Simulated scan of single mutants.
Amino acid sequence: MEETPVILVTAGYDHTIRMWDALKSTCTRSIPYTESQINRMALSSNKHYLAVAGNPRVSLYDVFGTSEQPVLNLDGHKANVTGVEFTQDYKFLATCSEDKTIRWWDIYAGSCRRVLDNGSIVNDLAIHPDSRQELVISCDQKGRVRVWSLKRQEILCQAVPQSDVAVRSVAVSPNGQLVVAGNNLGQVFVYRLTIDSSPQTGRIVELEPYINFDAHDGYKITRVLFSSNGLYLVTCSADHSAKLWQLSERVLPAPNGSREGVIQPGAELVHHLEYHLRWVWDAAFSSDSGYLVTVSSDMRAALWDISSGTVIREFKGHGKALVCVALNDATG
């Protein structure tokens, strides 16, 4: 396989990883994965490695290699691996699982450096974009959003958007200032993540409620994700659709003659992306935030033009439900 600037990968329940020529909608490489279904995937920022989360193993593949065998297997989880993400320097990998733990892996050593015990099934995670903070954000089956310190291996703060309603997916904005969580009732909760460090008090990390809205009318949210430029938020859902949002702030007239107006945050629906025939499970933005790929139980992947909200290509070939996608088309 010749190196290409666009790496697009899809997988799901047919035990096959497929890599695509995104411009021609043709499959360029197919890798069998017979151990289990595939739950989630991630591409390293240098495009060389693909992390595949199954049950219970995580496997790393050489994107530009020819072997069907992984270059590294990460064993340690005891149940379905539900989330996987590389650090920006692709030296470390974070995973979470139905075994109620989060694991922090050293890629070069091929070993687990940290095990965080969450106490309940972990549905998703996100790594804070500022590596100096050493923070991982998780969400779980009991409805909690937690911020973890990797160094201290402890919970720094948590939020419970709605008691006993599972939070399915979590995302952190590219600037690290917002945390978004989507739950089983179709609701989205946005928090301000504040990090205050001082010699006197040490580091104080807080999740401050910012805005919440009903995104999918009671249908389960399967994925929330920010675009690379932070302007867009996509939500995927069991209602067979995805929605593209813009989070914004507007200044309301000041009450009682005060000179300072009141800032009101809001979420504007940019596009209701209706194309798939079954659940939409996952999505991935292009590096310029101009395009979006979605995957569905209808066995199709769709490439969307964000400016128009229309499908410009589709990718067919899988024999069962598609539940995960990874895309890296960065040029620098």
Rank of each mutant, 00 (worst) to 15 (best):
G202S: 08
H216I: 05
I204H: 15
Q177V: 01
T194C: 14
Q177W: 05
T201I: 12
V234D: 00
S227W: 02
L233P: 10
G182L: 04
A181W: 05
E206D: 13
D214I: 02
K220M: 15
V172H: 03
T235V: 07
D214P: 05
H240P: 00
L225G: 09
V167E: 11
V205A: 03
S228G: 12
A181K: 07
L231Q: 09
T235C: 09
S163F: 12
R192G: 05
Q246R: 02
N184K: 15
H240D: 14
I221P: 02
V190S: 03
A238E: 08
P174G: 06
L193I: 09
V234N: 06
Y210C: 09
A166M: 13
V190C: 15
I204C: 15
I204W: 11
I204Y: 10
Y232F: 08
R192C: 12
A242Q: 02
Q162V: 15
S169C: 05
S241R: 11
I204M: 14
V205E: 05
A238W: 07
L185D: 13
Y210M: 11
L178K: 06
Y219A: 11
N229I: 06
P174I: 01
V170D: 02
Q177I: 00
L207I: 10
L233Y: 07
Q177T: 11
V170Y: 03
R223L: 01
Q200C: 07
D164K: 15
G218W: 13
Y210N: 05
R192P: 04
H240S: 13
G218V: 11
V205Q: 05
L231V: 06
P209T: 01
S227E: 08
V172L: 00
C236R: 05
L225Y: 04
P209Q: 05
Q200N: 12
Q246I: 03
A215D: 03
S197M: 06
I221Q: 01
K220I: 14
